[in-house]
């Protein structure tokens, strides 16, 4: 009997763990990236420095980054989540900044002229107008984060990577690897589909 029919409970648990890692990491990443990008949009020179920094972080191999974080955060899912947050920053920031740049200056000026406060402009004008591009960033980073989260299994974070590493450690257990690979693919595919749906749903007619 195939592996996924024999142990649906294990697979379900690992999938939930994987989703937990990905969703927590994406939420934290968005909570950091939204205000940061809003701030960088007003300070262009600083924006080059910050983007350069996260660009360099993105070049560090994921296993290495997680290992570097372990002495500070311990051999658990915390190190993995922080690594995932760091990786998604560069993608999210770039897309949010593009989205904010794409808003016509006249729109902001009109809002200003109507007496909207900076906060109101950010919340009621900039966010809704930039939302499709922001969600495109979320979609790309979701696929990246789902993939990198598999490596988290090596660092005690569980998730579907467990099936991959177990399958390779136990000779001849290709069924575990196939199961893990297919379910990870499905998770990434459904998350990106969901983001794509939201992207279309929140696009304003131009």
């Amino acid at each position: 009997m195939p592996y996924f029919l024999r142990y649906p409970d294990i697979i379900f648990k690992l999938t939930l763990q994987h989703l937990y890692l990905v969703l927590i990491a994406l939420s934290i990443a968005l909570i950091i990236a939204l205000p940061l990008a809003w701030f960088l949009n007003r300070h262009k020179r600083l924006s080059n420095i910050v983007m350069g920094f996260f660009g360099i972080v993105y070049t560090i191999p994921s296993i290495a980054l997680m290992i570097i974080l372990i002495p500070f955060l311990g051999l658990n899912e915390k190190s993995v989540i922080v690594a995932l947050v760091l990786y998604s920053q560069v993608i999210l920031l770039r897309n949010i900044l593009t989205g904010l740049d794409g808003i016509p200056k006249t729109t902001i000026e009109a809002a200003n002229g109507m007496g909207l406060s900076t906060w109101q402009i950010a919340w009621k004008i900039q966010l809704p107008l930039a939302l499709p591009v922001i969600l495109a960033g979320v979609r790309i980073s979701a696929v990246v984060v789902v993939a990198i989260a598999t490596i988290g299994a090596k660092f005690g974070a569980g998730g579907l990577g467990t099936l991959l590493f177990d399958g390779i450690a136990q000779a001849g257990r290709t069924d575990k690897i196939w199961t893990g690979a297919i379910i990870v693919g499905l998770v990434a595919f459904s998350l990106s589909r969901l983001a794509l749906y939201l992207e279309k749903r929140f696009s304003y007619p131009v």
């Binding site: 696929v143 789902v146 993939a147 990198i148 598999t150 490596i151 990577g161 991959l164 399958g167 390779i168 001849g172 290709t174 690897i177 196939w178 893990g180 690979a181 990870v184 693919g185 990434a188 595919f189 990106s192």
Partner: peptide, 17 residues
């Protein structure tokens, strides 16, 4: 794009056998 959603780690492990 479908190939891309499978992590490289998984592709690597799948090819080894």
């Amino acid at each position: 794009n479908t190939l891309r959603v499978i992590p490289s780690l998984a592709i690597l492990f799948l090819l080894i056998p």
